[in-house]
Simulated assay, not measured.
Amino acid sequence: MKVASLSAPGGIDRIVFRDVADPGQPGPGQIRVALHATSLNYHDLLVANGGIPAADGRILMSDGAGIVEAVGEGVVEFQPGDRVVSCFFPQWQDGLPSDAVGSFAGTPGDGINGFAAEYAVCAATAFTHAPRGWSDAEAATITTAGLTAWRALVVNGQLKAGDTVLVLGTGGVSIAALQIAKAMGATVIATSSSDEKLEKVRALGADHVINYRQNPNWGKQVYSLTGAGVDHVVEVGGPGTLAESITAVCVGGHIALIGVLTGRQGDVPTMALMAKQARLQGLVVGNRRQQQDYIAALNQNGMRPIIDRRFALDQLPEAFAYQASGAHFGKICVEW
């Protein structure tokens, strides 16, 4: 079967398309999936460009969606023909995070082989059902970006109608968070450096928009718009944006620290955070039960992901280059 793998030490120009042995039929507790789509995340880009070291020949991509071809002995949750989507942490079924998910050692496309492949044979518990009526490309956006947004707002944040949510930028997590927040009756403030993208988020329901390049002190503007600060911040920037997010959050509010787009470390205004008595919580995606809950909600509310562009599998390097340019709005998907 055809796969897209990475030659060490990494780099988009070191993505190799090669043929490997078919994984065969599923054993007890396993399913065989004909994969048809993946979606790009910042984590995938870091692996591909060598920012996160991976084993030589690692098959790329954490997200995978496709159709069950066969089920092994003892599998009752799935049957051939079911559309499924992978889990970011296949070893994390439910409950609170533990040492097992304190690294990416068990994450597809990083510590283990990923889903840039025609077929996969995995434990049935490494997948969930996809939302009804979704394409494989749409379903692939759930594994990382969609579930991250869901956990940040609904699981950890306990989002409720009438809350105010700040989303930073217009990547996959932020757009999913915007959609979830609006579906649950929240007010949303969105930031971007592009007026064109801000018009797009306004069309998706954002109540207020801020161009952070034109207003580098956007935290104060957010605070002014709300009168007391926002209840939730979906913080994908990291050290370069965290101080402004702390300014923007209300007393007793919640900041979900998700991304490191501006760097991996930096100063934290601890006095300001303490004065706000805000909760700053780091998170990395979520567990299988949370993914199932998210998909149950998607089956009810009719929400669909925003896909900016679609590429073929042999265009994966071009897809990563487009992602690195920052020009995308929402998700980038690869289909085959």
Results as ranks from 00 to 15, higher is better:
M1N: 08
M1S: 06
V3W: 07
S5K: 14
S5L: 05
S5D: 07
L6H: 05
A8P: 05
P9M: 01
P9D: 02
A21L: 14
A21V: 03
P23S: 09
P23K: 10
P23E: 03
Q25I: 01
Q25S: 14
P26G: 04
G27E: 09
G27P: 04
Y42S: 08
D44K: 03
L45K: 10
A48S: 12
G50R: 14
G51A: 10
D56I: 00
A65Q: 03
I67T: 15
V76I: 13
E77Y: 05
V85W: 14
V85R: 13
C87V: 15
C87F: 06
P90N: 01
P97I: 02
D110P: 03
N113C: 07
Y119R: 05
A120E: 08
V121S: 07
A124H: 09
A124W: 00
T128W: 02
A130H: 00
P131Y: 08
D136G: 03
D136C: 14
A140K: 13
T141R: 07
L147A: 07
T148L: 02
A149R: 02
A149M: 09
G157C: 10
K160G: 10
V167T: 15
G169T: 07
I175P: 00
I180M: 09
A183N: 12
M184S: 06
I189P: 00
E196Q: 14
L198H: 03
A203I: 14
A203P: 01
L204F: 09
G205A: 06
A206V: 04
Y212L: 03
Y212K: 10
Y223E: 13
S224P: 02
L225T: 10
V230D: 00
D231V: 13
H232K: 13
E235T: 11
G238E: 11
T241N: 07
T241A: 11
C250P: 00
A256N: 07
I258W: 04
V260W: 04
L261S: 14
Q265T: 15
P269N: 03
P269K: 04
M271P: 05
M271S: 14
A272S: 14
Q281Y: 04
L283S: 05
V284C: 15
R288Y: 06
R288W: 09
Q290V: 05
Q291M: 12
Q291H: 11
D293L: 13
N299P: 15
Q300D: 14
G302L: 14
M303E: 09
P305W: 04
R310G: 01
Q315C: 09
A319E: 07
Y322P: 01
A324D: 13
S325P: 14
F329E: 04
I332M: 01
